[in-house]
Amino acid sequence: MNQEVTLRRQWIATGVAVVASAAVIAIAATGARSEPPATPEQSTAVVSVSDAACGSGAGARSAGPVTFTLRNDSKWPTEVYLVKQPGLGTLFRSVILGPGVSLNERAVLGPGSYSFQCLQGGQVRSISLPFAVTGEVSSDDTPAIKQASSGELQQSNNLYLRYASQTLGTMAPQLRGLTAALASGNLASARLYWLDARQTWAGLGAAYGSFGDAGDNIQGVRNPALAPANDPAFTGLGRIEYGLYHRDSAQALKEAAVKLDKDVAALAGQLRTLPLVPGSLPLRAHEILEDTLRDTLSGQDDQGAGMAFAITSADVLATRATVADLAGPLESRRPGITATINTTLDAVNTALAPLHRNNSWITLADATPSQRRSVNAAVSSALEALADIPQLLALPQGSE
C-alpha cells in the first residue's frame, strides 16, 4: 500500500488528531504565518490564549474589518473559534496553534456580541468574555456559520450508504459479465465489462478511504517497488486492468475477477455496519476530484487502459452524489452553494463531451494538449467551488 493511501485512511479513521499534528508541526516550524499588514481601514487586535483564559484582548470596537492576531501563550496546542452570540454561529476556526505560535485571522464584523472559544485536546471548551461591536459596516460582514454536529452529518452518511448499496448492486452483473468473458477467452468483451465496472466503482467515490482495506482490495493499490505480476497485494480492478493491457492470460485474470466479485459482495454485506466517521463525507466531497486531477488526469494511476476521461466522468458523478447527500447541511449554511457546485461539475462534463465518441472514450494519450488543458481547467474550477465544503461542515475537535 502506498504512503498516500495509508495517510488518507489514517485521517478518516482518527479524524482531526492527524491534522492537528500536521498543523502544529507546520506552524511551529515556521513561526507566525506571514500575512499582509492590515490596511488603514482595518482595526487590529492581539488576542491571547493562556492556560488561565481564552481570547483576552479583543475589547469593544466599531463594526468593520478586523485583523485578529491570535497568540497561543499556553503550553498546549489550541484551536480558536470566533463566534457570534448568542449561539449564532462561527465566523472562523483557526488551524491548531502550537505553544508560542501566532497567526493572523481576518473578519468583517457587523454589530452584535462576539466571543472567542478555545479548544485544547482533552479539555472542556473555554470561552472568553463577550465583546461588543457597534455601528454599521460598509461592506458585507463575515457570515456566522452554524457549527456542524455529528448527528447532522450522520444523516448524510446514511444517505451515502444507501447510494453505495445501490451502486454496488449495479456493479455485480458487470463483474459476472467480466468473469464470463474471461472464461471464454474474449478479451475484447472483458475490456468493455471491466470499464463498466471501473466507472461504476469510481461513481461510488469509495476509492478515497471510505471503506478501508475492503475498498483497497477492490480498487487495486499497487506497490511501486514491485512488478505488478509479483505483487500479491495488487488485486481488484487495477490488477485486472494491468493484465488486460499487458497480455496476461485470460485464465489468470478470471481468478482475479472471481476474487473481485467476492470482495464486492462482501463489502455490500458490510455496508449496514460500516463505521463511517461523520466528518469524513465533507472531506471526500473535495478529495474525489482532487485525486482525479492529481492521479487520474496525470496518468499516474493508469495501468494500461488509458481511460482517464471515462473515470473522470464517473468521478464527477461521485462528487455530485456526495454533494447531494450533504445538501441539507450545506444549504442551511450557504444557500445556493450546491447549485454553484453543480454548475462547475456541468462544465467538467462539457469539457469531457468531445472525448466521448460513438460510445467509446478517447485515451489520455490520444487527446490533444488543448483537450487535456480544457478538462484540467474545468476540474480545477470545480475544486475551487468544492473547497468550502470541509470548512463549512467542520466538526469541533474531538467530536469526530
Rank of each mutant, 00 (worst) to 15 (best):
D213P: 05
D213K: 14
D213A: 14
D213E: 14
D213C: 00
A214Q: 13
A214S: 13
G215T: 12
G215K: 13
D216A: 15
D216G: 07
N217K: 15
N217E: 13
N217Q: 15
N217P: 01
N217T: 13
Q219P: 00
G220P: 11
G220T: 12
G220Y: 11
R222I: 06
R222E: 03
R222G: 00
N223K: 04
P224A: 08
P224L: 09
P224N: 08
A225R: 15
L226R: 14
L226H: 09
A227F: 12
A227N: 13
A227Q: 13
P228D: 01
P228A: 04
P228V: 05
N230S: 14
N230F: 02
D231L: 04
D231K: 02
P232W: 01
P232H: 03
A233C: 02
A233S: 14
A233L: 14
F234Q: 05
F234E: 02
F234I: 11
F234S: 07
F234C: 11
T235P: 02
T235Y: 02
G236Q: 09
G236E: 06
L237A: 06
L237W: 07
L237D: 06
L237F: 06
G238S: 10
G238E: 09
G238D: 09
G238Q: 10
R239A: 15
E241K: 08
E241T: 08
E241V: 08
Y242S: 01
Y242V: 02
Y242R: 02
Y242L: 02
G243L: 10
G243N: 12
L244N: 04
L244M: 09
L244V: 06
L244Q: 04
Y245T: 06
H246F: 01
H246C: 03
R247H: 14
R247E: 07
D248L: 12
D248V: 02
D248Q: 15
S249G: 13
S249A: 14
S249H: 04
A250E: 07
A252M: 10
A252P: 01
A252E: 12
L253P: 06
L253Y: 09
L253F: 08
L253K: 03
K254G: 07
E255P: 00
A256M: 03
A256P: 00
A257C: 07
A257E: 02
V258F: 04
V258K: 08
K259W: 00
K259G: 02
K259T: 10
L260R: 04
D261S: 15
D261W: 06
D261P: 01
D261V: 00
K262C: 00
K262G: 01
D263H: 01
D263G: 00
D263N: 08
D263R: 02
D263K: 01
V264N: 03
V264M: 05
A265C: 02
A265L: 12
A266K: 15
A266N: 14
L267T: 05
L267M: 12
